[in-house]
């Protein structure tokens, strides 16, 4: 297991280095260079040269890359002249909020989706299955902004029990102090995820329930509940691990539509506004973070898989 982990970490590291190289190259491919992008159209050639010299952009590329990596290692993702703050700071303010929202909705989605998928699989092609399938297709097909709007109309206008806006607190603590405000955005985000996850759980459970080992378990005279919970569920949830790994980047990138709808200043909004204003340091910083999250997500999924499935674990450690 330890060996396997080290190998996988090494692979992840290689990919992260590749990501930094690609980000670095993009930074230098900007039309007119970073100086023009930062100083704008009005800047004179002298100003551009001075900026390039100040930032070290006139040095050889290799040297520049080393400097870039050094800065990254110190947590310096660059400086946004548009926001007039460092990229690290800008992301640092928004990332925790985004993660709170994403984590809560993911947890909610899992807690709801797994039982739904299991119920569907054990009552396949009967009315509970058909009902849940129809509902999840409906949820999946509904545009999220429409869903969010309906939520707001229903739960803060027609039946005003929840605020229409996400918590506006500046710090994480202030956000958490207003849990009611988190309910609508969390649920809105979760609905689509539930639809997707429950489909995965259903098909995986259906496959597993048709396996011979389930028949063996039944031959021991076990109750149906025990057959499903003790024997099938664990094997049926493996695909969810992969899904979770793939979901990790979304945890960092945030959900633009929901954040806009509920006016929640998270990563999605940050990225969107940076794109509108051509704020390249922010764009690249966020891109880098999401790329790293993607690599970590895949790594996490593999490690969880190995922990959950002895076939993977033991084969890897034996070799």
């Amino acid at each position: 297991m330890a060996r396997y982990l080290i190998v996988r970490l090494g692979q992840a590291l290689v990919i992260v280095v590749l990501v930094t190289i690609i980000t670095f190259v993009i930074l230098h491919l900007l039309p007119g260079g970073a100086a023009r992008a930062t100083l704008g159209k009005e800047a004179t050639l002298e100003q551009l040269a001075a900026f390039d010299h100040e930032m070290g952009y006139d040095r050889p590329w290799i040297q520049q890359y080393v400097m870039y990596v050094q800065r990254l290692l110190h947590g310096d993702l660059g400086y946004s002249f548009q926001l007039n703050q460092s990229v690290t700071e800008a992301i640092g303010q928004r990332l925790p909020k985004t993660m709170v929202l994403s984590l809560l909705s993911t947890l909610l989605a899992i807690v709801v989706a797994i039982p739904l998928g299991v119920v569907q699989a054990t009552r396949r092609n009967r009315w509970p299955d058909y009902t849940i399938t129809s509902l999840s297709l409906l949820a999946y097909a509904t545009p999220i902004f429409f869903l969010g709007l309906m939520m707001i109309i229903l739960f803060s206008q027609v039946w005003p029990i929840l605020p229409p806006e996400a918590p506006q607190g500046f710090t994480l603590g202030e956000v958490l102090a207003d849990p009611a405000g988190l309910v609508l955005p969390t649920v809105t985000l979760a609905v689509v995820t539930v639809a997707v996850y429950s489909r995965y759980v259903r098909s995986s459970m259906v496959d597993n329930l048709n396996e011979n080992y389930v028949r063996t378990a039944r031959s021991k005279g076990l109750s149906e509940r025990r057959v499903v919970v003790q024997h099938t569920l664990r094997n049926g949830l493996f695909p969810v691990i992969t899904l979770l790994g793939m979901y990790l980047p979304a945890l960092f990138s945030g959900a633009l539509v929901v954040e806009s709808l509920f006016n929640f200043p998270g990563m999605g909004q940050l990225f969107w506004q940076a794109a509108l204003k051509r704020d390249f340091p922010i764009l690249l910083g966020v891109t880098l973070i999401i790329s790293v999250a993607t690599v970590l997500g895949a790594l996490l999924a593999d490690v969880l898989y190995a922990a959950a499935d002895p076939r993977v674990r033991l084969r890897r450690s034996a070799s």
Binding site: Y213, R215, T216, S219, L222, H231, A308, P310, R311
Partner: peptide
């Protein structure tokens, strides 16, 4: 009755055991 008084052995031994459960646990489950 089926669990205690009867026992069954299946055709394909490669797939008739739960891959993620220890052998002892499976054998002793009844």
């Amino acid at each position: 009755i089926r669990g205690v008084r009867m026992g069954m052995v299946f055709q394909d031994p490669l797939t008739s055991l739960n891959p993620t459960m220890r052998i002892g646990t499976q054998v002793a489950e009844p």
